[in-house]
Design a protein around this nucleic acid. Structure first.
Lengths: 143, 143
DNA sequence: TTAGGTGCAAAACCTTTGCACACAG
DNA sequence: CTGTGTGCAAAGGTTTTGCACCTAA
């Protein structure tokens, strides 16, 4: 039995309205193959002619993350970046430092190791973050 | 001069002066058992009567991190937190969500998995970050 | 002597919030 | 209708920077 993260859904799902802005953010995120920041997403939407406020983008992304519809990562330069989850299952990321290309990966072996390490040290309710950064094949070739 | 990242130690170690402030930051960090932010460290130093500027703390911590003398982590609330490395060897962390207690851990098995996953997807020059968050035995007991 | 370090305040950034108004349900 | 969502600008928080002065080497 793997560690339960949000095992029992609080049943009380927040009611979200289906607005044009919300759809735009969701779509833009779905089409991004890399982790993007709120500012970047906002700029991208504006370029396509979408009229949407920056605060709205922040709020929409925060909600998506809260609803587990998007993964979140803190970049080194202090930005919060989001990405639409490819899968609902627990997973990790391999991210290209150059272009941002991100691949989702999983491995029970590692999951078990992570859990056992936490237990060995007496830690309970353990969660974890695993991220692999490198240069993708294409960017490496372009060098 | 090859501009490679930090692959081969650049021999050209920056010359750092041994100042009172630098020592204070280094010491304070060494005595902290958890990851601390620049602001926290600054506040702590001031409380002990140390006269030191916030900007100086930021600069000192950035240098320590650059010299691989401190580990860095981005907290969820967007703060950059530092911790003196217990070991020079590559390692990961098990962090208590309550008190911040941090334990360094290593495991070749996982290292190999991380490397192979990156390779499988065609990524080169792969690095990674692994962090386990949980509640340490003591904090769990205190519940 | 002289280059790196320090302090302070200003500036730069990212993100959140208050509030009036718009609009989905 | 009602209450969530939106926009804008202001505010909040962290980190960086410009610049004159200090000081280790």
């Amino acid at each position: 039995m793997p560690t339960d993260h949000a095992t029992k859904t609080p049943t009380i799902e927040p009611i979200r309205r289906d607005t044009r802005q919300r759809r735009a953010v969701r779509d833009a995120l779905a089409h991004a193959k890399a982790f993007v920041s709120a500012q970047e997403l906002h700029a991208a939407l504006r370029e396509t002619g979408d009229r949407i406020g920056l605060a709205t983008v922040y709020r929409a992304l925060a909600d998506l993350a809260g609803d587990a519809e998007a993964d979140v990562i803190q970049s080194d330069d202090g930005e919060t970046r989001y990405r639409a989850c490819d899968t609902d299952a627990h997973h990790h990321h391999v991210i290209c430092r150059e272009c941002g290309l991100t691949v989702e990966v999983q491995a029970d072996t590692v999951e078990r190791w992570l859990a056992s390490v936490a237990a060995e040290h007496g830690f309970v309710e353990a969660e974890h973050t695993v991220n692999i950064f490198g240069m993708c094949a294409e960017c490496a070739r372009a060098r």
